[in-house]
């Protein structure tokens, strides 16, 4: 997080000190950090195609704690390059309880700013996930969509991920709602918090509570997410002003 603050501050310093190149003057960007704990439990099992009975579940409940750190930057006031890092560790419960993890790096993406502190991002990269004794370790090709809508003290935080797995036949075709993907997860939450302008650019933070949803092995899971979120972004200095606000 300190690195992100420094990056945004550096862009501002670059604007102030580099009269010739103006490299950072028109730079726009933002970042958001979510620290969260998600607990989901199975709610619906698919019938086995051959026997009509439910196959044995390998997971009853799954809990993951970690963070999602994403950022975006560009020279457009509405579109930027997006990058993300997701880390989550926890445990599964059920027949095979054990350590669970989900680690993702999303170096390719695009962000569309819907306002100073609101944005829609699309990202892809590589995710590794698994759980000892329950979920085969696999590499997942993810397609991530994040939506953050700011309305003063209230902020809507939503994200979804469709995933295509490699290296684990067990995890193929496991998302009934998305026949073209292997796995699906999503969260919609509401943050109550504050806004600041302490670094010369808008920031905000607050705790949030969300509903989490997951499809894996054809099983549907629903649960809760409890988290804390921070967001920051440059001012969209050309919109409505004609020149830089920096």
């Amino acid at each position: 997080m300190k690195v992100l603050i420094a990056l945004i501050a550096a862009a501002r310093v670059a604007h102030a000190s580099c009269g010739i190149c103006n490299f950072g003057r028109d730079m726009e960007g933002g970042a958001y950090l979510h620290e969260e704990l998600t607990l989901v439990t199975h709610v619906e099992d698919p019938p086995s195609p051959e026997t009509g009975v439910h196959p044995p579940r390998t997971i009853d409940q799954l809990g993951l704690a970690g963070f999602r750190l994403h950022g975006f930057a560009g020279w457009s006031e509405t579109i930027g390059y997006h990058i993300g890092l997701d880390l989550g560790f926890g445990a599964t419960l059920g027949r095979h309880g054990g350590f669970a993890y989900e680690v993702g790096f999303l170096p390719a993406g695009v962000a569309v700013r819907l306002g100073t502190s609101s944005w829609l991002t699309l990202g892809t990269g590589i995710v590794a996930s698994g759980a000892t004794g329950a979920v085969d370790d696999a590499v997942v090709l993810p397609l991530d969509v994040d939506l953050e809508l700011d309305a003063n003290r209230v902020r809507v935080i939503a994200w979804g991920r469709a995933g295509w797995t490699a290296g684990s036949p067990q995890r193929h075709d496991g998302a009934p709602s998305l026949p073209f993907a292997d796995e699906l997860e999503a969260m919609v939450g509401l943050r109550i918090g504050h806004h600041y302008n302490d670094f010369g650019f808008p920031t905000g933070n607050g705790g949030y509570l969300g509903v989490a949803y997951k499809e894996m092995f054809g099983t549907k899971f629903v649960g809760l997410t409890l988290g804390y979120s921070i967001d920051m972004a440059t001012k969209q200095h050309r919109i409505g002003h004609g020149e830089s606000n920096w």
Binding site: M1, E35, H194, Y196, D198, G204, N205, G207, I230, M232
Partner: peptide, 9 residues
């Protein structure tokens, strides 16, 4: 720490 890190650090 200062805003916006005041809630986590």
């Amino acid at each position: 720490l200062g805003h916006p890190l005041d809630g986590i650090a």
